[in-house]
Amino acid sequence: MDVRQLRYFATVVDTGSLSKAAVRLSISQPSLSQQIVGMEDDLGVPLLLRSSSGVRPTEPGMALYRHARTILKQFEQMRGDVLRGEHSESGQVAVGLPTSIAAVIAVPLFNRLQIAYPNIQLQLFESMSGYLIELLANGRLDMAVLFRETETRGLTVSPLFNEHLSLCGVPWVGDADSSSVPLSLVSGVPLVLPGKANGLRLLIERTFAREGLELNVVADIDSLPTMLTIAREGQVGSILSGALARQPGAAILGRRLVEPSLQRMVSLCVPNAVPQNAASRAVQNTIQAIVREEALQWDTVMQV
Rank of each mutant, 00 (worst) to 15 (best):
M1L: 10
A102R: 08
N162Q: 13
E76W: 12
G16P: 02
R201G: 06
T150N: 09
R255T: 12
R7Q: 09
R206G: 02
E126V: 13
S100A: 10
M78T: 07
H87L: 08
E151V: 14
I204H: 14
S241V: 09
C269K: 05
R56N: 11
M265A: 12
Q77K: 14
G212M: 01
S166K: 03
V45C: 13
I115D: 08
A289S: 15
L185K: 01
L72K: 03
S88H: 11
M265T: 13
I230E: 08
V95F: 03
N198S: 12
A103K: 05
A245W: 15
S179T: 15
S178F: 14
I252G: 05
L228Y: 01
V258G: 07
M1K: 11
Q121S: 10
P171V: 10
R7F: 06
F125N: 07
P30L: 11
L132S: 04
L47A: 15
D175Y: 12
S51H: 15
S28I: 00
P190Q: 11
V181D: 01
P118C: 13
V12D: 02
D220S: 12
E294C: 13
A116G: 14
R66K: 09
E76M: 15
V218M: 08
V145F: 08
I36R: 01
S280A: 05
M78Q: 04
L47W: 07
L135I: 04
P60C: 14
I290S: 00
L25H: 07
S261Y: 04
Q74P: 09
V181C: 01
S184C: 07
H164W: 10
F75I: 07
R69V: 02
P271W: 10
T58E: 14
G16W: 02
V291S: 10
T15V: 01
L141E: 01
I230V: 12
T207H: 04
Q92M: 09
I101W: 02
L83E: 06
D2T: 06
S53N: 09
Q247Y: 05
G54N: 09
G96Y: 00
I133N: 02
A243N: 08
S180I: 10
V236A: 05
I71Q: 01
R210P: 00
D175K: 12
L167E: 05
G16Q: 01
A231F: 05
I115Q: 10
A106E: 11
S51N: 14
L49P: 09
S267W: 02
G96H: 00
I27K: 01
S31K: 08
P30Q: 06
S261K: 00
L203D: 08
T229L: 10
S33A: 02
V189H: 01
G254F: 15
S88T: 06
D81A: 15
L155K: 02
S51Q: 15
F208L: 11
T226C: 07
